[in-house]
């Protein structure tokens, strides 16, 4: 089926397969349709159906609150039933030539490892080598479970054949139940990747500030992995703020210490505990880190005071934490939006 998209700066068309999400068809064809979460939550991908038939596979998606008429749809949840003409309220951006084109592929679960009582690491062997930028995510579908979930890649490799993710368990959640069941290893999952604009490139000549809450640290690990490999912290500062509730919710601390130890003069790691005072065991185990009690955005705001010049900030975590961090970065730090990259997951 042919999809024609008229945006404010021109008209593009692409082919869409039966059952394929319109957003995916556009992106894999090089048409940079707008999106942010790609999972029906944020509403960024809305478009107006001017002609043809299309249907949402998730009519109650929370992102639907931004739709203003029955003719509007979320391209990330909609499939075409016919040739369609869509109108976008915004302009189509052009993708950076170096940015990898996303595609649908499959992957097999090879390892599952508990990181904390409710966070699990998953490794996936993918069908073919996948290029992605540090900080990007993948849409993952589990057989028998409706809808896709977005997970950031933890690792960074060109032509990666193995992807690492972290999953936060939600009591009663369909994916969580599956993850706790038998036969997870060896399960074949569906992927659409890579996606996301909160990316780091070594040619960014700026200090790097990472503010992460909980499993939001995943994408930061990918960014730190690339930045360390490229020697970025030889010339620029890195500030990592990692917020969790209590000491037992912390993970990847050994991995963060390994990054820090490579650039002790310029790379700092601060762990913020929101729900308890810092137990003495933590600084004893990680003498190179700083620890503080408080919300991670507040801790970052306090410790970064006067040090926001030439900073590129990355933010990921639960929506309230991301919003609070964005307020800090815009109002106190006065960073331009181009230097604030974020993922909100809910």
């Amino acid at each position: 089926m042919k999809i024609v998209v008229s945006a404010r700066n021109g008209t593009r068309d692409f082919e869409c397969d039966p059952g394929e999400k319109i957003l995916h068809a556009g992106l894999r064809s090089g048409v940079e349709l707008p999106y942010e979460c790609a999972t029906g939550t944020c509403g960024t991908c809305k478009a107006r159906l001017v002609g043809g038939r299309a249907e949402s596979e998730w009519p109650d998606a929370p992102g639907g609150r931004s739709l203003q008429s029955a003719a509007e749809l979320l391209t990330c949840q909609s499939v075409a039933r016919d040739d369609c003409t869509l109108a976008l309220g915004t302009a189509l951006k052009s993708r950076a030539p170096s940015a990898p084109t996303p595609r649908a592929l499959g992957g097999v679960v090879r390892a599952r490892r508990a990181l904390t009582h409710d966070v699990v690491a998953l490794q996936l062997d993918v069908d073919g080598p996948l290029d992605f930028d540090a900080g990007q995510f993948a849409l993952v579908t589990v057989p028998g479970i409706a809808g896709a979930r977005a997970y950031s890649m933890v690792n960074f490799d060109r032509g990666a054949e193995r992807l690492s993710f972290v999953l936060k368990l939600k009591p009663g959640g369909a994916v969580s139940n599956w993850l706790f069941g038998d036969g997870v290893e060896g399960t074949r999952l569906g992927l659409f990747a890579p996606l996301g604009h909160a990316t780091f490139h070594p040619d960014v000549r700026k200090h790097v500030l990472c503010i992460a809450g909980g499993s939001g640290i995943a994408g930061m690990m990918s960014i730190l992995s690339l930045a360390c490999r490229e020697g970025h912290f030889g010339a620029w500062d890195g500030h990592v703020f990692f917020g969790v509730r209590t000491a037992r919710d912390g993970f990847f601390l050994d991995e963060l210490e390994a990054f820090r130890a490579q650039y002790p003069a310029r790379l700092s790691v601060t762990v913020a505990l929101s729900d308890e005072d810092v137990p003495a065991s933590l600084p004893a185990a990680y003498p190179g880190f700083a620890f503080a009690r408080g919300f991670v955005h507040a801790v970052a705001g306090e410790r970064m005071k006067g040090r926001f010049a030439d900073v590129r900030a990355y933010v990921a975590g639960p929506p309230p934490m991301v919003d609070a961090s964005l307020r800090l970065l815009l109002r106190e730090a006065r960073l331009p939006p181009a230097d604030i990259r974020y993922d909100k997951f809910s």
């Binding site: 024609v4 008209t11 002609g51 003409t85 109108a87």
Partner: peptide
């Protein structure tokens, strides 16, 4: 553009 797309469609 929107009107033209609609007419064409």
């Amino acid at each position: 553009k929107i009107l033209r797309a609609g007419v064409q469609n």
